[in-house]
Write a protein that binds this DNA or RNA. Structure first.
Lengths: 332, 332
DNA sequence: ATGAAAGCGCTAACAC
DNA sequence: GTGTTAGCGCTTTCAT
């Protein structure tokens, strides 16, 4: 059996309340007593039991993190930002992968609440009604990171994806393009449909360029699918001359498709994409992109959560972080 | 205040012991009683408090995971394997990043033990003495995943990195090379020094090729450092003709260095590397590599941990998984 | 098959 | 400044 606070109390000849005070840095302890207690703790090798503490205090200093897939660079980077700020505020993280499955997300929410997390960071490409409902009943604050809340009901941290798409397409238009393809992951993902696609459309409309349905290429969100999609794209009756893609993996898939058949980027085709990893700098030519500050989004989300957990005043629950363009070689 | 087991007991007109039995699937409950209890649980929306349960039962169904950096593809993939098996056995995961700093690792171990994890998966590139000591005193089982335990003291899951290096270099030798450079991350990392470097040396020795100190290039473990390192390498007095690198990021750094100056792979230089991500398939030419089954290493490590936590018999604490070569275009 | 009661190890009034 | 005591919400003997 492990050493308990009671053992320490007996050893130091004080009550467990005093030991508790020492452990928790309560100032109402005579220095000499404190020293005595600390000594006993040291000698006995006492380690507070966080579970007992959690039960008694109703705070676990643990936050839940629900993420589609931790092994992707997008969510890996986001999670690292979350974790670092969590550490800074002395929270532990319970991390679970949802694989973007609503039933699984629901299970996980319930599971995490059962574990008595003090707060939760939620990430998902599409928030289902059941999930939203469960989150509405949440006993603790929730922040969404890199995740769209169409109802603007929960606290969120993102960038203005719509504006970024708009500006990206404008760069293409300025370079003389009118045949611009938008290559996207599933349009069931709010971020793709509501934000990125909208920005693409707005730019075209404003420039008086006709929107072609066949220029919106919806594929699975992987490098390989993007690579294959080039085979479809090159058979379009009106050949495109430029691309906007929703992430770097897709961009590289298209890029490789183009280059493996002897065409050139940016001479034959220009490409711009959202950047979620250093892949954009690793390929040749390097890709011009919208740098999405994933780490920061995670960090700010976690910071926001700490405020919520402490009932601090929040200016705005919906935070949009700045983004920047990295001008590289896939645009002339 | 949330609904407790006591509220359910009262509502269903049974004792809390019976409710507890129902929750825990204990068979000693009359079906009609069970139904009654289940109904109350449903109606009241009761959710068991895992913290209270943990305190009473001394099991938290939570395992700790200490990882250098979750945002890398190496540890991201490993962690995903761990997480999936954890889910399968109904464990939650407390995930913490150590940044490979021994003091931080030590803190985290203590922290996780304080949270009463039922077991722990530890990942690190170099296990310090203090960390080893703390782990020796651990109150719960520990498994190391993708991590070298020089003392073979703890349970580990890996591949035979030494043999993989040996075979890789042999491929290079078979292709006629004698000037083979080994580009590695910090040699303070046991995996690099004790395993990969040794395999490299063994192959050269066996082939009667002289080992040159300047052919062991030790750099930081990043793409950018590798890219820069090419500038050093090309000034070697005896130019190498082939490379073995300890991971794909480094390989791609070298590859880009070579190609950006107009040389060709595999015509001028051949490259082989350990593969930790799909980067090897994304670059051109695609890289021949040793495919390290990261996901499986994580999964097997977690499975092993479940056995250890259940006091099941283990055949062998030190598991080496098979690996394979992906023959691609960076070798002739 | 069910209930009563004693903890699990700690925090947090409250009293002195 | 320190001690006493009553929980926190469960599990787990031990009775019945």
């Amino acid at each position: 059996m492990a050493i308990t606070i009671y053992d320490v109390a007996r050893d130091a000849n004080v009550s467990m309340a005093t030991v508790s005070r020492v452990i928790n840095g309560n100032q109402n302890v005579k220095p000499s007593t404190r020293r005595k207690v600390l000594e006993s703790i040291e000698r006995l090798g006492y380690r507070p039991n966080a579970v007992a503490r959690g039960l008694a205090s109703k705070k676990t200093t643990t936050v839940g993190v629900i993420v589609p897939d931790i092994s992707t660079s997008f969510y890996g980077e986001l999670s690292r930002g979350i974790a670092d700020i969590a550490t800074m505020y002395e929270y532990n993280i319970i991390l679970s992968n949802s694989d973007e499955r609503p039933e699984r997300e629901l299970e996980l929410l319930i599971d995490h609440f059962g574990k008595q997390v003090d707060g939760l960071i939620f990430m998902s490409d599409a928030v289902s009604e059941e999930v939203r409902e469960e989150m509405t009943r949440a006993p603790v604050p929730i922040v969404m990171a890199g995740t769209i809340d169409t109802q603007e009901q929960f606290a969120t941290v993102n960038i203005d994806y719509e504006q970024a798409a708009y500006e990206s397409v404008n760069k293409l238009i300025e370079n003389g393009h009118t045949e611009i393809v938008f290559v996207t992951g599933p349009l069931s993902h709010d971020i793709n449909r509501i934000h990125k696609l909208s920005g693409y459309e707005r730019a075209l409309k404003e420039a008086g360029i006709e929107m072609k349905d066949e220029y919106v290429i919806e594929i699975e969100d992987t490098y390989d699918t993007a690579y294959e999609s080039w085979q479809t794209i090159k058979q379009l009756k009106v050949q495109p001359t430029a691309f906007l893609t929703v992430n770097s993996s897709i961009a590289v898939g298209i890029l490789n498709g183009i280059r493996d058949e002897g065409y050139s980027v940016p001479d034959d085709y220009e490409i711009i994409c959202y950047e979620h990893s250093n892949l954009t700098r690793i390929v040749r030519p390097q890709l011009t992109s919208v740098v999405v500050p994933l780490y920061d989004i995670g960090a700010v989300a976690m910071r926001l959560l700490t405020k919520l957990m402490n009932d601090e005043e929040i200016e705005d629950k919906h935070i949009n972080l700045p983004y920047r363009f990295a001008e590289r070689d896939s645009l002339k």
